[in-house]
Every structure is written in structure tokens, then in C-alpha cells.
């Protein structure tokens, strides 16, 4: 936290209703590692750390909303207790300045201060914890500089790196850490957590609502919780699957079916019109590509070579979109390639 930004009085006065105005994702962020769902492997390691008061350097990676930051913050709290957080734990994330020198200086300063007295009731091992969240947005140079800093201070500091893509972390850093992949929380595994929130907020789920929630969130529990909260706010405390689909902005099945039909119809004008409408409706194109892929794979009468060509085109377009290309142009190009492939005899 950055408590210096609030003066104490104000922070107190807002606390009274902060719980009612806090989004559910924050309100129900687990404060104890045992409440973190579906990441047993890392939890087991951390429990051991709590018992033995020893901790390796850690690297957490995985898609958004799977509990990485939550776990790091929880273990920090459980190791040192609330009163020592400031002295023993430092969090640096992408919103902080993380140039080479800054990182070196900050860490040096942090590591140099003495560890101080342990407090009653917490393990308080004799080291400090440095959480580098969103580490994949650090430059290679900054990571390289970190490597030496890490060695220099390894006696008194433990590092937790957090990122979405492990490939963005340089090997020398990654190899110094115990690595844990945070798995997407798919259908079934997020149930317990969602049910917990539902009962605390007095919400009931209609049949199939949980399944829908699992589907639209794609393993991102944060997204599931936000959808749940929005659905409740919109339609009251019984949540229907349709409401969830609505707030999640899911692409309706008909959209891709008609796009594929346009591709099969054989003239360029068909796809141009279909895509003009699809873009006007504002559907997220990456999502459309994903569903187009599913549709093409399920479509009968398409030869393997054709499938391969189409999947190749889809992959390239997805990459281009990730690089920030124009949605209309990419989708039109993909559809054009799909049409040419499906209509060619080769």
C-alpha cells in the first residue's frame, strides 16, 4: 500500500463505507493463502515456508485474475503480520519507476535497513520480502541489473516476481526462483469461491448460471466476480445466465455463424457487408477470431489443408491485433483468406 498518500484522518473516515463502495473483487480478495482457490502446489510450498520460516525466491506466472498478486500479499501478511508490513515488505509494480538505477537504489536502500524485532504471533523470519509485480513490463536491461542486486542482497531479502508471461523474464532471473504457474480457474474450480461470495452477499444463482460464469470468464476469477457483481446490480439478487452473457459482452453464436456463411457464399461483397456490420456492432474482434476458429474446425466438408490454411491466417491476424492493428482491416483480411481457401479447389 501507499499510505503516505492519504492523511490518516481521511483514511479513517472513509473506512466506514469503504466496504460498501469497494468492488467485490477487492472486498473478497483472500487475505489468507488457504483461501486462494485452485493453486495447491504453490500453497503447499508457502505453508511449508510458514512452518520453517524459510522461503526461496519465487516466480509466479499465469493469466490475469488467477490469484498471483493475492497470494503474494497474503503470504507477506502471514509471515510478518500487519505491523511489520512497512519495514519488511516492499511492493514494486508497473506503476512505479523501475529503471535500472532506480531499482538498484531502491532495493539497496530497502535491504540495507536492519530487519528489526519480530512481533508476537507471526513467524517473522529474518529477511525482507520484495514483491516485483507485473515484472514482465520491466525492460531486459533492468532485469539484468536486478540479477546482480539479487545476489548481493540474497542473505537478507527474498524476491517474489509476478508476471503473466514467463517468457518475458530473462532466464538468469527465472532460474534463481522456484517457479509456479497459476492455473486458470476453469468451470468447476471457481464454484467454491463464487458460492462463498454469493452467500455473503445474499445472492442466488439460477440453474446454469455458474456454468455460464465459468464459460465467459475463461478462467479469470476476477472477471467472473466483476460479472457476478454487475449482474446482481442490474437485475437483482437472482442471477440468470442471460444476464451474465449480457454483462460479459459475449459474442452471440449467430454472429460467427453468419460470418462463416458469408465466407462460403463466394463473393467479396458478402464478407465486406458482414464485417462492416460486425464492427459496427462493436464485437471484440479477438473474440470473433477465436469463435471463427471453433466454427471452422467444427464445420463438415472442409479439408485438412484448408483448415490448416485458415488457422494460419487466424493466428497471424491475432498477432497483428495484439500489435495494435486495425480491427476492421484484420478481420476483413482474414475473412478474405477464409473465403479464398474455402472456394478454392486446391
Amino acid at each position: 500500500m501507499a499510505p503516505s498518500l492519504f492523511d490518516k484522518g481521511k483514511q479513517k473516515s472513509s473506512e466506514a463505507h469503504s466496504s460498501s463502495e469497494q468492488p467485490w473483487v477487492e472486498k473478497y480478495r483472500p487475505r489468507n493463502i488457504n483461501d486462494v482457490a485452485h493453486q495447491e502446489e504453490v500453497i503447499r510450498t508457502l505453508e511449508k515456508a510458514l512452518q520453517t520460516s524459510n522461503l526461496p525466491h519465487l516466480l509466479f506466472y499465469g493469466p490475469p485474475g488467477t490469484g498471483k498478486t493475492t497470494t503474494a500479499l497474503a503470504i507477506a501478511r502471514q509471515l510478518f503480520g500487519p505491523s511489520l508490513q512497512k519495514a519488511r515488505v516492499r511492493e514494486l509494480n508497473a506503476s512505479d519507476e523501475r529503471g535500472i538505477n532506480v531499482v538498484r537504489e531502491k532495493i539497496k536502500g530497502f535491504a540495507a535497513t536492519s530487519v528489526g524485532q519480530p512481533v508476537e504471533g507471526y513467524p517473522c523470519p529474518p529477511f525482507k520480502l520484495l514483491i516485483l509485480d507485473e515484472a514482465d513490463s520491466m525492460t531486459q536491461d533492468a532485469q539484468n541489473a536486478l540479477r546482480r542486486t539479487m545476489e548481493a542482497h540474497s542473505k537478507v531479502t527474498r524476491f517474489i516476481f509476478i508476471c503473466n508471461y514467463i517468457s518475458r523474464i530473462i532466464e538468469p532471473l527465472a532460474s534463481r526462483c522456484a517457479k509456479f504457474r497459476f492455473k486458470p480457474l476453469h468451470l468447476g474450480v471457481m464454484d467454491a469461491r463464487i458460492n462463498h461470495i454469493c452467500s455473503a452477499e445474499g445472492v442466488s444463482l439460477a440453474p446454469k448460471a455458474m456454468e455460464t460464469l465459468g464459460k465467459v470468464s475463461g478462467g479469470d476469477l476476477r472477471k467472473a466476480i466483476t460479472c457476478l457483481q454487475s449482474a446482481v446490480r442490474l437485475r437483482g439478487s437472482t442471477v440468470e445466465p442471460a444476464t451474465i452473457l449480457d454483462v460479459a459482452g459475449a459474442v452471440p453464436g449467430g454472429v460467427t455463424t453468419s460470418l462463416l456463411a458469408a465466407c462460403q457464399a463466394g463473393t467479396f461483397a458478402n464478407i465486406q457487408e458482414a464485417i462492416r456490420n460486425l464492427i459496427a456492432e462493436g464485437f471484440p474482434v479477438q473474440q470473433v477470431l477465436l469463435e471463427l476458429q471453433t466454427a471452422v474446425l467444427a464445420e463438415g466438408g472442409v479439408r485438412d489443408l484448408q483448415r490448416a490454411r485458415i488457422c494460419h491466417a487466424l493466428g497471424e491476424a491475432d498477432k497483428c491485433l495484439a500489435d495494435g492493428s486495425d480491427e476492421f482491416l484484420q478481420l476483413l483480411s482474414v475473412a478474405s483468406q477464409v473465403q479464398q481457401t474455402l472456394c478454392s479447389t486446391a
Partner: peptide, 13 residues
């Protein structure tokens, strides 16, 4: 990227 933690940390303000 810099918005990520900020959106969580400052969510009550």
C-alpha cells in the same frame, strides 16, 4: 501496465 495495480490499490479512492 501501470494501471493494473493502481486500479486495485486506489479502487476505493
Amino acid at each position: 501496465h501501470s494501471l493494473r495495480r493502481t486500479m486495485e490499490k486506489y479502487s476505493s479512492a
